[in-house]
Write a protein that binds this DNA or RNA. Structure first.
Lengths: 252, 252
DNA sequence: CGCGACTTTGACAGATGTCAAGGCTTGTGG
DNA sequence: CCACAAGCCTTGACATCTGTCAAAGTCGCG
């Protein structure tokens, strides 16, 4: 089953259910949200810094990065979003984009009008709370990224990122196991980890030589999950996902 | 007038009003929130990682850091909170602390029970929205910190931090101008900027030699604001504060 | 086949970290 | 009022990690 066969909103609802209890009606209202799919091409900004947006985006397929930029043009990805994520859910509350969103590969998103989101939230305060909680969860990830980029050396930093992504994919139930897609160039990985592409390359080589993980052809193969977690100093608590919650969300 | 003479909740309300329109009743309800002051001593964690908290904290006086930690014990401050901030407003929605809070100096906080916050929000959905928006604003700062720590060199990074703090203090109206308190040791500054204390010291020396800013005796003196902004590559947009909004909030 | 984008590698440079010693403040107790 | 201790700041010498530059190799695609 390809990811695109799933109702993309369903993925998002599963994600909400991981941290918020929703009634049947609330879930149905969410699934009934109007949304139209848009194909976004590789490397294109589909939300620009400072722009006022009228809709929030749901990632259906592909990968979306939130970008920060420097005077000298060097880029930093401050958040990475996989299918089922809404990278700018917060825009429904704060519609001036505080950073740009870019597709890191060919990706398809769905635009969900703010008007619909706001209507939904007005009817269902509990959903508002779930949305808010979702924003808080994203902030926890941001906070961990500050630590990652600030205080861990290159090899550790990359390992940590791979762990995070593996867990997040696992939680969606669509890309499970010790092998998953990472449709990202080493240049983009450098923008994620705040390293140079050359150094990313070196560290990936080391990770492979040490039989920890292999990144090749836009695909990650975890060779030794224990070691990867250890070298990444990874503790998944900040992601607020647990196996049991995943099982529960499946029933959504 | 000392900062502690102001009703601390008033500072917080002013902050909300910067981005959210609140009615008179809503403001009054906020100001009527029960809260009792607590003195927190230097370097003490008053919220621990993983702890379930029953109240959110309002910084009244002093400085609070949100901490991330590494296996090797090195620390990273992921957010800094000044008087008028609620460092863990989000805990009312997500009560398991995703990181520790520590006082960086002798500080006084007020504990506001979640029950009261949740009651208020139930009565006033518009306040819920303001709270949510406040959390989003905090996330925007986090995002900027990822860029700062990830992509700027040491001197730039420190300059950027000083600019941010100057603007945030200015917005509160309590610590205005080109000189402000920064009751923080160089070790703590290192934890904020993801540098070593030694290197922080070297860079502060450079900033002073270049007549940009002086940090001495827990106090910052901006020698040339233009230069500081330039060397920090600082653009205050992400803080979502403008002079006009400050004026407006004064009327709150 | 050949072009373009990406990856890989080596040699070298530069920024920041590490270690260690000494100087300055500040507060305390005699 | 002095002496001392503790914490903080400052500095220098040196180590290390990561960045820079440049060239060659690989891969996929038109």
């Amino acid at each position: 089953m390809s990811i695109s066969d799933i109702n993309p909103l369903r993925l998002f609802v599963s994600k909400l259910v991981r941290h918020s209890a929703l009634s049947v009606e609330e879930k149905q209202a969410l699934l009934a949200l109007p949304a139209h799919p848009v194909q976004v091409s590789y490397n294109s900004d589909f939300v620009r810094l400072g722009e006022r947006v009228e809709y929030a985006c749901l990632v259906v397929d592909g990968l979306v990065g939130r970008f920060g930029q420097n005077r000298d043009g060097s880029r930093q990805i401050t958040a990475l979003h996989i299918p089922g994520d809404m990278p700018d859910l917060h825009s429904m509350i704060s519609p001036i984009a505080s950073s740009a969103l870019q597709a890191l590969t060919v990706t398809t998103i769905m635009k969900v009008p703010h008007s619909a989101l706001r209507g939904l939230v007005r009817e269902h305060p509990n959903v508002a709370e779930a949305f808010w909680r979702e924003c808080v969860a994203d902030a926890a990830v941001l906070s961990e990224w500050v630590v990652n980029v600030g205080r861990r050396d290159a090899r550790t930093r990359i390992a940590h990122f791979l762990c995070e992504l593996a867990c997040r994919y696992e939680a969606t139930g669509t890309n499970v196991g010790f092998e998953f897609d990472l449709p990202v160039t080493q240049d983009q990985l450098a923008d994620i980890t705040a390293l140079t592409p050359v150094h990313v390359n070196r560290m990936l080589k080391v990770l492979q030589e040490q039989n920890i993980a292999m990144v090749r052809n836009r695909r990650v193969t975890v060779l030794d999950w224990q070691k990867l977690v250890a070298t990444g100093e990874f503790n998944s608590d900040y992601l607020q996902i647990t196996k049991s919650q995943i099982a529960e969300s499946e029933a959504a």
